[in-house]
């Protein structure tokens, strides 16, 4: 007996509620954009400069006392958060963030030293596990490269899918990508989770994963378009999604299994990163079915795939053999 997450034979109509699902996606995207502009992202120091200090202490942490010790230093906006890790309940770890100091081109060692000695008067056992300072010059560049990286990834993928499929597929896939990224950013704005360089890496992985999913569905669509020449596009899409559904769910589940292991056991340092990826896998799986295919359906595709063309898309690698 096999474990089956999806019934052997499905013929669900994924487009029956297409107006609702697509509408919901659009609405979520609009909401994300609004959230982004209203609440904004909680940028980490990678992107806005400043210093973070990770402390650990023997006694439990009194955030108020820390704040009182630091406020006389006049360092501007200081955020102190206690890091809570359910797998390590007895650790007393805080994350302190100090904004970039006015007029500092580079990072100031004195600021860090002042903070360190101020905290040690509160609790002599305080140990500084990690100190990171990023100057405003670098943080500006990091934002630029990050945005550029995401745009470059999307663009390259657009071209690749266009070459391998048709432009409609390409637009569909990219629509799904943009949807995933916008939604993830929206959720990060809503929950005010720290948004740093690692999250950009996560975003790009989401791009990769969501695409992986979309491409598998599209590959089947391409195949079925050749096989069922008379079938309506909507039915071909439905058939293809149903046929690949079991795989879509399997892969998402194995990936989620791994990611859940990581978010629970991987420690708090990478928790935000893993959280972004989990979001991405869930949203990406959804979007490859409900966004990419919907866009494809709206755009329509060339149905004449029968022409024997040795260079036709999808045949370049088909004779790769072991």
């Amino acid at each position: 007996m096999r474990l089956k997450l999806v019934p052997e034979e499905t013929s669900w109509d994924f487009f029956k509620l297409s107006k609702v699902t697509f509408g919901a996606s659009m609405l979520a995207m609009v909401a994300s954009v609004i959230l982004f502009f209203v609440m904004g992202l909680n940028f980490g120091i990678d992107f806005r400069g400043g210093t973070t200090i990770r402390t650990s202490a023997e006694q439990s942490v009194d955030v108020g006392a820390y704040r009182d010790a630091l406020s006389p230093l006049g360092l501007g906006d200081i955020s102190i958060t206690e890091v809570f890790d359910p797998t390590k309940p007895d650790q007393n770890v805080t994350q302190i963030r100090i904004e970039a100091q006015q007029g500092d081109e580079s990072v100031a060692g004195e600021t860090v030293n002042a903070v360190k000695s101020a905290l040690q008067t509160v609790d002599p056992s305080v140990d500084f596990q990690e100190v990171t300072s990023v100057g405003p010059k670098v943080s500006g560049e990091l934002i630029q490269t990050a945005v550029l990286a995401v745009v470059a990834a999307i663009f390259t993928v657009l071209v690749y899918i266009w070459l391998r499929f048709e432009w409609q597929f390409s637009v569909g896939a990219v629509a799904a990508l943009v949807h995933d990224i916008v939604l993830t950013i929206g959720i990060f704005s809503l929950l005010q989770i720290k948004f740093d360089l690692a999250i950009i890496a996560a975003l790009l992985t989401i791009v990769g994963y969501s695409l992986n999913d979309t491409v598998v569905v599209f590959d089947r669509v391409r195949e079925n378009l050749r096989r069922y020449k008379k079938l309506e596009l909507k039915d071909v899409l439905n058939l293809s999604i149903n046929e690949t559904l079991s795989r879509t769910v399997m892969t998402s589940v194995t990936t989620l299994l791994a990611l859940i292991a990581l978010i629970v056991l991987g420690g708090d340092v990478i928790r935000g990163f893993v959280f972004a990826m989990i979001l991405g896998v869930v949203i990406g799986t959804y979007s490859s079915v409900f966004v990419a295919s919907n866009v494809l359906l709206m755009l329509g595709v060339k149905r004449d795939w029968s022409r024997p063309d040795p260079n036709a898309a999808g045949t370049q690698f088909a004779d790769v053999d072991a």
């Binding site: 990091l142 490269t145 990050a146 550029l148 990286a149 470059a152 990834a153 390259t156 993928v157 690749y160 899918i161 391998r164 360089l197 690692a198 950009i200 890496a201 790009l204 992985t205 791009v207 990769g208 994963y209 695409l211 992986n212 999913d213 491409v215 598998v216 590959d219 089947r220 999808g314 045949t315 690698f317 088909a318 790769v320």
Partner: peptide
């Protein structure tokens, strides 16, 4: 095979972009 190749090449593209444009820890990823 064609689905495997297409799906993995697209992921590979994003990995390469990360490698070229990322720094430090991100490159490790």
């Amino acid at each position: 095979l064609s689905a495997i190749i297409d799906a993995n090449i697209t992921t590979l593209i994003t990995a390469v972009i990360l490698l070229v444009m990322g720094s430090g820890p991100v490159q490790g990823f």
